[in-house]
Simulated scan of single mutants.
Amino acid sequence: MTNRLNAEASGGKRAANPLAQGWYADPEARIFEGNYWIYPTFSAPYEQQTFLDAFWSEDLSAWHKAERILDVERIPWAEKALWAPSPIEVGGRYYLYFCANDIQSDEELGGIGVAVADRPEGPFADALGHPLIDRFVHGAQPIDPHVFLDGDGRAYLYYGGWGHCNVVKLNADMVSVGSFDDGEVFKSITPEGYVEGPCMFKRSGEYYFMWAEGGWGGPDYSVAYARSRSPLGPFERIGKILEQDPQVATGAGHHGVFVPNREDGDWRIVYHRRPLGESDRNHRVLCMDEMAFDDETGNILPVKMT
């Protein structure tokens, strides 16, 4: 791997979870330049969440850390609660969507921002000087962005907390929001049971929309999903595919998916969970397990935590 990375080996070959040392959460999974990348939240009290690290691997076994790919010193409007990063590559540039400040009303400064870099490891710098989305629409707190690039080149940003999810269409510049064909800018697509942490991928012509349910600080955090023929839904909840296992870990949720190049490739779900015996809500670790589909229905099979 290039020496442009400030990379630190994260335990060498690892046969078991967690993937990396330290407390991390809310991972996004991507494949950039032939390598596997995980972009998580640094799991700590909000005032300490002032930077983002990333992890990369050539083989899904040996993971390495790229340190401080983004921090609040490069975001003029951010102070704390920097979390839930979601990157995408377009035209040779990397766009990283994130949220900061955990705003509770439209009167506060914060929300979802976008940073840009020339490499997947950054360093990323704020692209706008202000948030991309800085207000509550359809009841959705502007947090937990997830960017999805469809096969036709259209880019969508899914986001939302407080039990509401919206989707917006990103313009070609990737740093501004456009409108849909009907003139609407923010579309509410909230499925039953949605809490936060949206995730989208496409398989066999269908859109699989996933999200987190339950409370992130408790043991019942989990992942559910829906399917649709459109990236805009409607999304009718099918059921949970990842939840706590009293023999392994609790609080399993807010995830990303490695989408293979081939339909019959190996799918992986990357998520955070809380080790048994840990009661601090910020004590979360990065984990990865196999994700499989029913051959007949195409539904996602329940994930077995390892």
Rank of each mutant, 00 (worst) to 15 (best):
P142Q: 07
L109V: 15
H146A: 05
I103P: 02
F124N: 03
V114A: 02
S105H: 05
G110K: 06
F98Y: 15
G111T: 01
Q141I: 13
V116H: 08
G110A: 01
N101I: 06
F124L: 00
D106G: 01
R135Y: 10
H138T: 09
V116P: 10
P131W: 05
I143K: 10
D102N: 13
G111M: 06
D144Q: 03
D144V: 05
G139V: 13
H138Q: 13
F124R: 06
D118Q: 11
D134H: 14
P131V: 11
G139K: 12
I112G: 00
L109Q: 11
P142N: 06
V116I: 15
P120G: 02
G122T: 00
H130I: 03
I133L: 15
V114S: 00
H138W: 10
R119P: 01
G110C: 10
F136K: 11
G129P: 14
C99S: 07
E108A: 11
E108T: 09
A100C: 13
D106T: 12
R135E: 12
H130N: 05
A100K: 10
A127Q: 04
P120L: 02
V116Q: 02
I112W: 04
I133Q: 12
P145T: 04
S105V: 05
R119T: 15
G110F: 09
G129L: 07
C99A: 12
A140L: 07
A125I: 14
Q141F: 02
V116Y: 07
H130W: 11
L128N: 03
D106M: 09
A140Y: 03
S105M: 08
P142C: 03
L128S: 02
F98S: 02
